[in-house]
Design a protein around this nucleic acid. Structure first.
Length: 748
RNA sequence: GGGCGGUUAGCUCAGUGGUAGAGCACCGGCUUUACACGCCGGGUGUCGCAGGUUCGAGCCCUGCACCGCCCACCA
């Protein structure tokens, strides 16, 4: 029933301008969106808000997807739920480091001592200044704090109904504590482990990267046909024709001739008649004179190149597979920075039939990058006559770190892993139990789980991140015993192993014989953000809250990070709690520019939200965002924002009309009024049903259609009656019906 | 090579078995006391292609084409 309206002063010309500030102050003052921590789990709706990466500015894509979540939050709140809707900031990790480097003009050099008085110059200097790791981390914290203020202001201006008392940061103490505790528990159970193994490696960032962070890019390259001499095959045996001469030489094709010094074998398919006679025999690498075996392996594709491939340590991940399965030795030539290292030819592992010649050739490669070394090797091969014909340029897919600029290499290093391969079945089952919106997005998850190729590498050789809470004993001879890590009590967390000291040791024992050293690495950002439900829910610090909000109701996120964030969160929850972390996954699409390309900073087509919000009003922008259906990529369209703005102004004017002469009021008796309210009730029921199914876009469409008809038909028909032209009873019915409709439509 | 989505009016998109829709854009008319940031009116489609199921198909089934995305061992 209509409430008695408070006396209000109606503006002559209602406007959208200023509404954001007005309502933010009201919401803040009334703690409107503060979570009621006394409510039972069944009365709670909890949201695992995506913490946006704090490395620059929010763009219109953020506004788009966060609006979707806000619509759901407001719906659930109106349904009577206590809505748990925190905000997080993802401020650790590489994007932050990179932004800090550019913003202040600094580089982190972990070998430098801390300088407490260090202040960055006003303008980023060139070349950048080297600063210590603690100084670097201070700058990261400083810049992210500033960025987070800007982000919060934008979110408030947009009108997100977030509980701002529950904000967390992935580099904050609570998050570090959760991240480290969860890691230690997995370590105890043997699910987290460390391994020295060939790992995908970015030579610019100088860190390991995980499978989930790879992307293929079309990259120019060239096939080089190169001959290897068959050991013991004199010219007398020669002859033979075609690509698989059974004569003195065998020819391979490669895109990476610079790795010939790292060649450890050739490989062909076991059934390949052309190369069968060579299995078990050796060939001699060109330039370097190293005898390497020819091996059969079913992975070798007779159709590719000449059908016989060179195995190097390591040119690609197939090399790693062959190397492991054929038990081949390692001849690594690349340093972590991507340069060719020094090699003593003739020493153990680098035996050559002509060590002097090998040394002479190799010394021309040492210190070069892969690209430069390739050019040099090609020249050398041309001189020696081992390059057959000219290199044939091609474009082929090459694996890159998604944030990287140069192709990934494979470097052997000690890294931390979390087991995933052992849990694939459970993970698939969890994915099937999860409610996906839209439904078809589950395929991406399942596809990914079924395609996992190895356990999850979580260590990164970086600085601004959550450290591994472990130290290693240093033996009497000064070597490090990685197999027996020293771990702290959980109550000590979070710790920084580079400054904190393990129990039973003193700070003076750091790095000395019979002392200890801290683990130098930090965790991958996903290793921490995979725990956002636990971080936000007070897993370790507020068990009462945890039982009221976990498992959470909704994970909203975009489809491009199903394989990273969604997958890793499901994994961690499965490992830690044996449950799903949430019951629903609401997957947003992307915002595409008018050319249907994804908007992203690297493409330079990003539209910043601030100006749009000011021009069209937060309601106008939210209107556009809410028209994007779950999972559907949506074109950036200011025209729709204009429509939203007009709709908002229309609502203000309709409200003005309804409120300007709200008396007399009384029973709703007129058929026209009752019919309108009946249709409105149907709309409310439909809207409720559709919002429960996360179809907010349909609700917008239906509500909007009703509203325009309400204005253009109903209000026009009722106008003279409500002014009293047909008596007080008709006016009373009209006024009362109008006020109910107004109140209901505002909430819709 | 595998998976997923899309293909409907000039544009952006709804529409999952019963006479093809909305908004935008475009044109014309209206200073009607909530709103000119408004109202009224105007027409537009071999619903990607080919088969099939059905009394009836934009919608269901099969195949194909094109566009996009995700994944895959990149010699």
């Amino acid at each position: 029933m209509p409430e008695t309206p408070q006396p209000i002063s109606l503006p002559e010309k209602p406007a959208l301008e200023g509404l954001e500030a007005k309502w933010n102050a009201r919401w803040e003052g009334d703690s409107t969106y503060q979570f009621d921590g006394a409510r039972d789990r069944k009365d709670v709706y909890s949201i695992d808000t995506p913490p946006p990466t704090v490395s620059g500015s929010l763009h219109i894509g953020h506004v788009f997807s966060y609006t979707h979540t806000d619509v759901i939050a407001r719906f659930q709140r109106m349904r009577g739920k206590a809505v748990f809707y925190p905000m997080g900031w993802d401020d650790n990790g590489l994007p932050t480091e990179r932004r800090v480097q550019n913003y202040y003009g600094v580089r982190c050099d972990p070998s430098l001592p801390y300088d407490p008085s260090f202040q960055p110059p006003d303008k980023p200097p060139k070349p950048p200044i080297s600063v210590s790791r603690p100084n670097f981390i201070e700058l990261c914290a400083r810049l992210t704090a500033e960025d987070e203020k800007v982000f919060e202001h934008l979110w408030r201006y947009l009108g997100l109904s977030v509980d701002w008392t529950r904000t967390y940061a992935t580099i904050g103490r609570s998050a570090q504590r959760v991240s480290q505790a969860a890691f230690l528990r997995l370590l105890k159970r043997g699910i987290a482990y460390q391994l020295e193994a060939p790992t995908l490696w970015d030579v610019d960032f100088r860190t390991a990267v995980a499978q989930a962070e790879l992307e293929d890019r079309e990259h120019p390259g060239a096939y080089h046909r190169i001959r290897f001499e068959i050991e013991g095959a004199g010219p007398a045996e020669g002859g033979g024709a075609g690509p698989a001469k059974a004569g003195r030489y065998v020819e391979i094709e490669t895109t990476r001739p610079e790795l010939i010094p790292a060649c450890v074998a050739l490989v062909a398919h076991p059934d390949d008649e052309r190369y069968r006679p060579l299995f078990g025999r050796n060939v001699i690498t060109p330039l370097f004179g190293v005898p390497v075996p020819v091996k059969p392996h079913p992975l070798a594709d007779p159709e590719k190149g000449s059908g016989i491939a060179m195995i190097c340590t390591f040119g690609d991940i197939t090399d790693v597979t062959w190397w492991r399965e054929l038990s081949l030795p390692v001849r690594a030539v690349l340093l972590p920075n991507g340069a060719f290292r020094q090699v003593q030819w003739g020493a153990e592992g680098w035996e050559s039939r002509n060590a002097a010649a090998a040394q002479d050739a190799y010394d021309q490669l040492a210190n070069l990058s892969a690209v430069k070394a390739r050019a040099r090797v090609v020249e050398l091969l041309q001189q020696s006559g081992d390059l057959i014909g000219e290199p044939r340029p091609i474009t082929h897919p090459v694996k890159f770190y998604e944030k990287g600029d140069r192709p990934l290499e494979i470097i052997t290093s000690r890294q931390w892993f979390i087991k995933t391969m052992d849990f694939r079945e459970q993970l698939v089952a969890r994915g099937r139990a999860l409610q996906w919106h839209p439904e078809y997005m589950r395929h991406r998850y399942e596809n990914w789980v079924n395609g996992l190729a190895g356990d999850w590498c979580i260590s990164r050789q970086r600085f601004f991140g959550v450290g591994f809470p472990v130290w290693y004993p240093v033996r009497a001879d000064g070597t490090v015993d990685y197999a027996q890590p020293l771990v702290p009590e959980e109550s000590r967390l979070p710790i920084d192993p580079s400054t904190d000291v393990p129990d039973g040791f003193t700070a003076e024992q750091r790095g000395v014989p019979n002392g200890f050293i801290g683990d130098p690495d930090v965790m991958d950002t996903w290793a921490t953000s995979s725990l956002t439900p636990q971080i936000a829910s007070g897993w370790l610090e507020d068990p009462d809250l945890f039982t009221r909000v976990f498992p959470m109701d909704l994970r909203p996120q975009a489809h491009d990070i199903i394989r990273t964030w969604l997958f890793s969160t499901v994994l961690r929850s499965e490992l830690e709690h044996g449950s799903l972390p949430w019951t629903n996954a609401g997957i947003s699409g992307w915002v595409l520019d008018p050319d249907r390309k994804k908007m992203s900073k690297s493409k330079g087509n990003v539209v910043t939200p601030k100006a749009l919000l000011e021009e069209h009003g937060s309601d106008g922008v939210r209107y556009w965002a809410a028209s994007g259906r779950p999972g559907t990529d949506t074109a950036f369209d200011p025209a729709q924002m204009k429509v939203g703005r007009r709709l908002s102004i229309k609502i203000l004017n309709a409200a003005r009309f309804a409120l300007m002469q709200a008396e007399p009021r009384g029973p709703i008796t007129e058929p026209l009024d009752r019919g309108m309210l009946t249709r409105l009730a149907v709309l409310v029921n439909d809207a409720t049903r559709n919002l429960e199914a996360y179809d907010y876009a349909r609700v917008l469409e239906q509500t909007e259609a009703f509203f325009w008809s309400f204005c253009d038909d109903y209000l026009e028909l009722v106008k003279s009656r409500r002014y009293g032209d047909f008596g007080p009873e008709g006016a009373a019915s009209a006024n009362s019906a109008m006020l109910v409709a107004l109140s209901t439509l505002l909430r819709l």
